[in-house]
Design a protein around this nucleic acid. Sequence first.
DNA 1: TTTGAAATGGATTCGGC
DNA 2: GCCGAATCCATTTCAAA
Lengths: 155, 155
Amino acid sequence: MSKNIDDNDVKILNILQVDATRSLESIAEEIGVSLNTCWRRVQRLEAEGVLERRVALIDNEKVGLPLTVFVSVRTDDHSKAWADRFSDAVNQMPEIVEFYRLAGDVDYILKIMVGSVSDYDRVYQRLISKVKLSNVSASFAMEKMKFTTELPLGR
Amino acid sequence: MSKNIDDNDVKILNILQVDATRSLESIAEEIGVSLNTCWRRVQRLEAEGVLERRVALIDNEKVGLPLTVFVSVRTDDHSKAWADRFSDAVNQMPEIVEFYRLAGDVDYILKIMVGSVSDYDRVYQRLISKVKLSNVSASFAMEKMKFTTELPLGR
DNA sequence: TTTGAAATGGATTCGGC
DNA sequence: GCCGAATCCATTTCAAA
């Protein structure tokens, strides 16, 4: 934990990462500081970029996106040019919601959210039309058992 | 896409899933409806559970959680009792931020956010002390190339 | 320089038309 | 769907420590 984040900051972050609609007044009361102090801390956390943004989370099933797919990618082309093209292609595709480069035998993992298996196939076809992938393996999620954007900050 | 979500609802959702601090007035203006209509639509989307909640997103590196680990789990115990114990254990561990049951040869995938490899090892030890896992494989993320909570709703 | 109390003005909420 | 009143809330100001 960064040294410029104290106990009260953590309390504020823990409240806001559960519910960003909480009023400053109620947060101030809960953590035992004045409204003003609380406001200043939130401002500082935003200015420092600790608090990145506030977003609305949408129920993926209720908007017709019940299927989550994890895709493992291996490549034999480890050039920068290839990596850049892959990255650009992924960033143009809104169905790909997460994308990491990994250590180990799998080079990349993608998380894709779509309406159906055939929607997934269209996303897959579009992706491989943009960039050559030597070894791709898809795993379909049968059940979302936990999903949170809340980071473990301790108390 | 569910039939009770129309074009204007999608526009509202697309705005709020990028920035939940936007005022109703500015949203109303952007999509071309009255403030009141916009407010009622947001109320309805919340009541229906389409809009689940609004949260603050925190910079994981700035709070000392630079390491993301994907863990694949295979099990030979496919009983309900075992699955429940696994699920309970995961839900008690805030470092595990995502958890899915998969189709295919890997049974589960976990996404874990921690400060370091040794923090990961502590999480891992804690997990296997609570539930027997027959085959576990961890992949460490070297680079977060894309992360968004924004669902692809089309226009 | 920091802190808290109070004022301001803007945004949200909700009834009625 | 639109108006407008009542309320709530973020932000600024200002005085005191």
